[in-house]
Amino acid sequence: RPRTAFTQNQIEVLENVFRVNCYPGIDIREDLAQKLNLEEDRIQIWFQNRRAKLKR
């Protein structure tokens, strides 16, 4: 699968959610997927990668 290119707006929304909860449940991820026009699994991976970035 090709790399997902997130828009600046999508990143802002994801970062705002991350600040509140870095482990969002499936319900939050599915809601975000619908709002941001992305697949839920892409959102899940984004949070996984963002948590890894935080640990660095």
Rank of each mutant, 00 (worst) to 15 (best):
F18A: 04
E40W: 00
F18S: 01
Q10L: 02
V13C: 09
Q10R: 03
L32R: 01
E12L: 08
R42C: 11
N49Y: 02
Y23C: 12
N37S: 05
N16R: 06
L14G: 01
T4P: 13
N49T: 11
T7N: 10
N16G: 13
L38Q: 08
N37P: 11
A5Q: 15
Y23R: 06
Q44M: 10
R3A: 14
Y23M: 05
Q10H: 04
N37I: 05
V17R: 01
R3H: 05
Q48P: 03
P24E: 03
R50I: 02
R50V: 02
T4N: 11
D41V: 10
L54F: 15
T4R: 14
E40P: 15
Y23H: 08
N37M: 03
R29V: 12
R50M: 06
P24S: 01
E40M: 14
K53L: 11
D41L: 07
D27A: 08
E30Q: 10
E30T: 13
E15M: 08
I11V: 09
D31F: 15
I26H: 14
N16F: 00
K53A: 09
Q8S: 12
I45K: 14
C22S: 14
I26E: 08
F47Q: 06
C22H: 15
P24K: 14
T4G: 13
N21R: 00
Q34L: 09
T4H: 13
A52F: 06
W46D: 05
Q10K: 01
Y23V: 04
V13N: 07
E40D: 10
L32A: 01
K53N: 07
T7R: 04
K55G: 07
N16P: 00
V20T: 11
I45D: 12
V20F: 15
L36K: 00
A5G: 13
R3K: 10
V13R: 06
A5S: 15
R56C: 12
D27L: 07
R42H: 11
V17C: 08
D27Y: 02
I11P: 03
R29L: 08
V13Q: 09
P2V: 15
N37T: 08
G25A: 10
F18R: 02
R1V: 13
N49V: 06
K53I: 09
K55W: 04
L54R: 04
D27C: 09
V13K: 05
G25M: 02
F47G: 01
R56E: 12
I43T: 04
D31L: 06
I43F: 04
R51D: 14
E40V: 08
R29A: 10
N49R: 07
I43W: 01
T7H: 07
L14I: 07
D27V: 07
V20R: 10
D41G: 09
Q10I: 06
R19D: 03
N9G: 10
R1I: 15
Y23S: 11
R19I: 07
N21Q: 09
I45S: 13
I11S: 02
I43V: 07
T7I: 05
L32H: 02
E15Y: 04
A5K: 15
A33F: 02
I11A: 06
I43K: 05
W46A: 02
L38S: 08
C22M: 15
L54W: 08
D27K: 09
Q44G: 08
V13M: 15
N37Q: 09
A5R: 13
A52G: 08
Q8H: 06
N9D: 14
R29I: 08
Y23P: 00
R3E: 14
F18M: 00
I45E: 13
K35R: 08
F18G: 01
A5V: 14
G25N: 08
R29Q: 07
C22N: 14
R51V: 08
E40G: 06
Q34S: 08
E12F: 14
F6L: 10
N21P: 00
Q44R: 12
A33K: 04
A52T: 14
P2A: 12
L14N: 05
Q8M: 09
D31S: 11
R19S: 07
V20L: 09
T4M: 15
F6I: 11
E15H: 05
Q8D: 10
E12W: 02
Y23N: 13
P24G: 03
D31V: 05
E15P: 05
A52M: 07
I43A: 05
G25Y: 02
D41T: 12
W46S: 04
L14V: 01
R29F: 08
I11Q: 10
N21K: 02
K53C: 05
A33S: 10
F6W: 06
D41W: 13
N49C: 05
Q44L: 10
E15S: 01
T7P: 03
E12Y: 08
A52N: 11
A5L: 14
P2R: 11
N16W: 02
E40I: 08
N21L: 01
L54S: 09
Q8R: 12
W46G: 00
N49S: 08
D27I: 05
P2G: 15
R42F: 06
D31Y: 09
Y23I: 02
A52Y: 08
C22A: 11
Q44N: 11
D41S: 13
V17H: 05
E40A: 12
W46R: 02
A5P: 14
F18K: 01
R3T: 12
N9A: 09
A33W: 02
L32Q: 05
F47Y: 05
R42S: 13
T4S: 09
R19H: 05
Q48N: 07
A5D: 15
R50Q: 14
I28F: 02
Q44V: 09
N9V: 12
I11D: 11
A33D: 00
Y23L: 07
G25Q: 02
R42Q: 15
D41R: 12
C22Q: 14
Q48G: 05
E12G: 04
R3G: 14
Q8W: 03
I28W: 04
I11Y: 05
I28V: 12
R56M: 13
